[in-house]
Amino acid sequence: MGLEAAYTTLVGLAVGDAFGAQILLPGDHPDVQARRLPPAPWGWTDDTEMACSVFAVLKRHGVVDQDALARSFAAHFDPERGYGSGAEWRLNQIRAGQPWQTVNVTNGRGSWGNGAAMRVAPLGAWFHGNLPQALRQAELSAVITHAHFEGVAGAVAVAAAAALRAASPGLAGPDLLNQLVPLVPLVRVRDGLTMALKIADAREAADTLGTGREIAAHDTVPLALWIAARHPGSYVDALWTVAQLAEDVDTVGAIVGGVLAAGGTPVPADWLAACEPLPSWLR
């Protein structure tokens, strides 16, 4: 499958994540408006750490082996990387030997957070030659930690966007969103993407689609994919737009960075140099 495309996507995701993690200021702050880069080095977060597990399992197995992926998530879990409390609990339970199937649902409902979406772009690039497989494998990767329909749909949407971009690098704007919407289950994530088709203004996009404040798939994925669709040729413009609009800046940045890189949008050399290297266990 698309090993090189998946690795390129992983790097784009990591740089977007690490850049976003440095943006602790509101989007209207003069440093953000003037596009003053944060001082290096930029450390990445749980978004990249989990995406590395997705990539490693695909490289080893060729598909999502759910047990292997759950073990990798748990083995490489570092609480200093900014995991949410729900993810921490689940990964600690898996690390302690509990089957992932018994810990990914709480009170009868799985998480609808954006965690499955933030890590999945490399998977979409990996399966870019087989779109139905990309959708199915995204679902399998999501349910390990996110059993709610919204959490799964967010992962499917991001994987589909990365697969479409990797297969057709020129695909962007309304054309990308039009091809993407029918691939996403009929939940709030898809509703947001449908609304995104009608929006041209950045501030309206944030006000209408969400900013990641809720750390939910439906509050994060539509804005991220709107930004990626609007800035297909410029990693810099896209990520500064993330900094200006998003509240969960690292996760929106990871999604945007991964989807853009999947389509061949280059990561600037100075941004790449500022980003923390990928973990040694991945190499």
Rank of each mutant, 00 (worst) to 15 (best):
V105G: 00
R36Y: 10
V184T: 06
A161N: 13
G258F: 00
V11G: 02
V103A: 01
R95K: 13
V221F: 02
W226M: 09
G173N: 14
C275L: 02
F55C: 02
P41Y: 11
A216L: 12
A166N: 07
F149L: 04
A40R: 15
D201Y: 12
A34Q: 15
D219W: 06
W112T: 00
L123I: 09
D248M: 05
G210T: 07
A6W: 00
A160H: 10
S53M: 03
A5P: 03
G84F: 08
D250S: 08
Y83T: 05
V143F: 03
L10A: 06
A217F: 01
A147N: 03
V54S: 05
A229G: 12
M50K: 04
G16S: 14
E88I: 14
E247I: 13
P99V: 03
L91Q: 06
T106P: 00
A6N: 02
R119F: 03
E49Q: 13
V184N: 03
W100S: 00
A196Y: 06
L58V: 07
A217I: 01
F77N: 02
D47V: 03
G151A: 09
G212D: 07
A196R: 06
A5Y: 02
P26D: 14
V32F: 11
V181S: 08
P30F: 09
E80T: 13
A134F: 12
D175Q: 14
G124K: 00
A160R: 06
A229V: 10
W271Q: 04
A206C: 08
V259I: 08
P268N: 08
C52F: 08
A273N: 08
F73Q: 04
L13Y: 04
T220M: 06
A243V: 12
